[in-house]
Nucleic acid binder design. Sequence first.
DNA 1: CCTACCGATCGGTAGG
DNA 2: CCTACCGATCGGTAGG
Lengths: 201, 201
Amino acid sequence: MVGRPRDERARNVILRRAADIASQDGLEGLSIGRLATDLGLSKSGLFGFFGSKEELQLATIRAAMGVYVNEVVQPALTVPPGLGRVRRLCENWLSYSQRRVFPGGCFFFAVTAEFDARPGRVRDAIAAAGLDWAAFVARAIDDARQLGELADDTDADQLAFELIAFLEAANVTSLLHDDANAYERARTAIRKRLDTAMTGP
Amino acid sequence: MVGRPRDERARNVILRRAADIASQDGLEGLSIGRLATDLGLSKSGLFGFFGSKEELQLATIRAAMGVYVNEVVQPALTVPPGLGRVRRLCENWLSYSQRRVFPGGCFFFAVTAEFDARPGRVRDAIAAAGLDWAAFVARAIDDARQLGELADDTDADQLAFELIAFLEAANVTSLLHDDANAYERARTAIRKRLDTAMTGP
DNA sequence: CCTACCGATCGGTAGG
DNA sequence: CCTACCGATCGGTAGG
């Protein structure tokens, strides 16, 4: 099912716009007609790329995952494993949210809140992405622990939960109140929490 | 503009159902026709109660605020000011989320993520409720500080930000992954964070 | 990839 | 508070 290069480029343009819209108005607020008009395509032409609204939603999630990996995950892998990589992951995330890579803030925050109470393939795809991300953060934390940079008894899953909580709280607070201070709040919280984790509970 | 008692009772029933729907499908997913069918009313009859969809959305937010105050805020006021009240507020919140007082988890989490990137009166009402809540938590924290139960230099707004981050992370994690452990994660995080705040940074 | 169309549903209104 | 209706928009399809 791989199209010609030209089709793939078109798909990428479509899906990047779709992710922008969904970050603001949700994956249900993303309508095929509106997306087609935005891009200067016919509705049925755009529809033909995906075959159903659900497939468009799933493809949009995959495209947003690509952006997320490029913005948050990959640049952290240039830092060697350890506490530095954990800090870099958090900073990359805050920067990705603050720079409004997606105009509605973190794409995954928006669509998670939208689908967390609606069963289906879209929710399942969002949940899988969330588990992957939490496991990746926990792995980076556990690497730091094994390297002796965090206390031996550090619970990586617990610490990942707390750091991710700070990141998401900064995202939603800055969006809702146009308050960039929320990012400094999160940075302060993360710094202090990692300091505590260095010496143990 | 106060209706007869009978009208007020009907309004309460309508708005409680509206809040349930919105917690799962959002305030845009809440359609007048669906709400009317659910309640056995005609669409135009229900429409007449509110006059516009936006007014229905605003009334639904006010109704959800009443539930929230009853479930989370009021029972914490039976505890004297201090650290005990702060802990009680957090526990009330986790219980309110975990018991699914609204079937889609915390009503305000759902609608905040939905409207945080859309200007308008609905967003403004949600933002005002969020500020009130954060200020209330910060006030409870500062009471505890003034009573000597938290370190003198405790930053109440910062600590409120962190505690609320844990609460909301538990809500969304439990919903997305059907994982009740998230509430224990939040309880652990809150307990440790308050312990740290007792002795100072 | 387009035009033209389908039935369903949306918010909202007329008229009683 | 109801029935009946309005134009707009939804996801999706027919036909080319």
